[in-house]
C-alpha cells in the first residue's frame, strides 16, 4: 500500500512533530509512506476567503503530485475535507476529474477505517480533553455530531482507548466551534477570541492535563489564547499520543 503524505503548511511550519508522529504510525503499521517534496497548500485559505478559483492551479498540482499513490493521508481535518469536498467541483470547472478526493483521508480516519488498527504499544497516563473540531465532526464524521439523532460514536476515542493509562473526557458543549475558522479568526477577531476563550475554559474545566484532537489548526488559535492568558493546559495531537510508544 503506497501512502502519500500531505503535510499542510501550518503543520509543516508550526507542528512538524505531528507530521513525524503520523509517519511513525503509518510506518509501524506497514504502509509504504512517501512525501512528495513539491507539495504546498490545498487552497483552503483562498476558498474560505471567497477566492476558490485561486485554488484551481493548486488542485491540479495536488492531483498530479499524488497520482501514483493508493492513498493520500494528512494530519489535518480542515485540509482533508477541503480536498474531499471542494476539489471535485474545482477540477470539474477546469474540465478535469479529481483524482485525489476519493482517496484522501485524515490520519485518524485512515487508522480507524482503512488500517483498522486494533493494537498499539505505549502508555499515556494522563487525563485528556478531546477537542471535537467542526469539520472533523460535521464533514469527516470522526464522531457523531451533537445535533443529530444518531447512534453516538467517536473514532478518536476508539483510537485513544488503545493506549494504556489514558483517561478521555470531553468539555461541555462537546462539539461547539472554537472560533478559529481560518480567515474568520482575522475578519471577526472579537467573536473569534470570545469563542476561543469559552472553548479553552471549558476544556480547562474538565481538569484535563492536555487538550487533544485531530485538528492542530484549532490548537494554533486556542494555544495563542492560552499563551496570552498564561494558562497551563498543554496541547497534543491525537497521533502524538498514538505514536508515544513507537
Amino acid at each position: 500500500m503506497r501512502v502519500g503524505l500531505f503535510i499542510p503548511c501550518y503543520v509543516n511550519a508550526v507542528f512538524p512533530e505531528v507530521g513525524v508522529a503520523t509517519c511513525k504510525l503509518l510506518d509501524y503499521l506497514g504502509a509504504d509512506t512517501g512525501y512528495p517534496l513539491d507539495q504546498t497548500c490545498c487552497g483552503q485559505p483562498m476558498g474560505n476567503a471567497g477566492f476558490e478559483n485561486g485554488a484551481a492551479g493548486l488542485a491540479g498540482h495536488f492531483d498530479a503530485l499524488f497520482e501514483s499513490y493508493d492513498y493520500v493521508v494528512s494530519p489535518s481535518v480542515g485540509c482533508t475535507s477541503f480536498v474531499k469536498e471542494n476539489y471535485p467541483r474545482i477540477r470539474e470547472r477546469e474540465g478535469h476529474t479529481c483524482g485525489t478526493s476519493g482517496k484522501i483521508y485524515e490520519v485518524c480516519e485512515f487508522l480507524h477505517d482503512i488500517l483498522k488498527v486494533e493494537k498499539l504499544p505505549g502508555r499515556f497516563p494522563h487525563k485528556v480533553s478531546i477537542h471535537n473540531s467542526c469539520h472533523g465532526v460535521r464533514k469527516l464524521h470522526l464522531s457523531s455530531a451533537s445535533e443529530l439523532n444518531i447512534q453516538p460514536f467517536s473514532k478518536i476515542k476508539g483510537l485513544l482507548s488503545l493506549i494504556g493509562g489514558i483517561e478521555c473526557v470531553e468539555p461541555e458543549k462537546t462539539d461547539e466551534c472554537c472560533g478559529f475558522g481560518g480567515m474568520f479568526s482575522i475578519e471577526e477577531p472579537a467573536v473569534s477570541v470570545c469563542m476561543g476563550q469559552d472553548k479553552l475554559y471549558s476544556h480547562i474545566a474538565t481538569g484535563a492535563d492536555y487538550i487533544t484532537g485531530a485538528d492542530a489548526s484549532c490548537f494554533m488559535h486556542m494555544q495563542g489564547i492560552a499563551k496570552r492568558e498564561k494558562r497551563a493546559i498543554r496541547f497534543i495531537h491525537v497521533v502524538q499520543i498514538l505514536a508515544s510508544g513507537l
Binding site: I7, Y10, V11, N12, A13, V14, F15, P16, E17, G19, V20, Y35, L37, S185, I186, E187, P189, A190, V193, G196, Q197, M220, H221, Q223, G224, I225, K227, R228
Partner: peptide, 22 residues
C-alpha cells in the same frame, strides 16, 4: 494584526517537517 488582539502568534518550529524529511 487582528490575530494579536487576544492571542499570541503561533510559534514556528526550529525546523519544518520538510527540512526534517530532507
Amino acid at each position: 494584526n487582528g490575530w494579536g488582539k487576544g492571542r499570541e502568534m503561533p510559534e514556528f518550529a526550529n525546523e519544518s517537517f520538510t527540512e526534517m524529511w530532507k
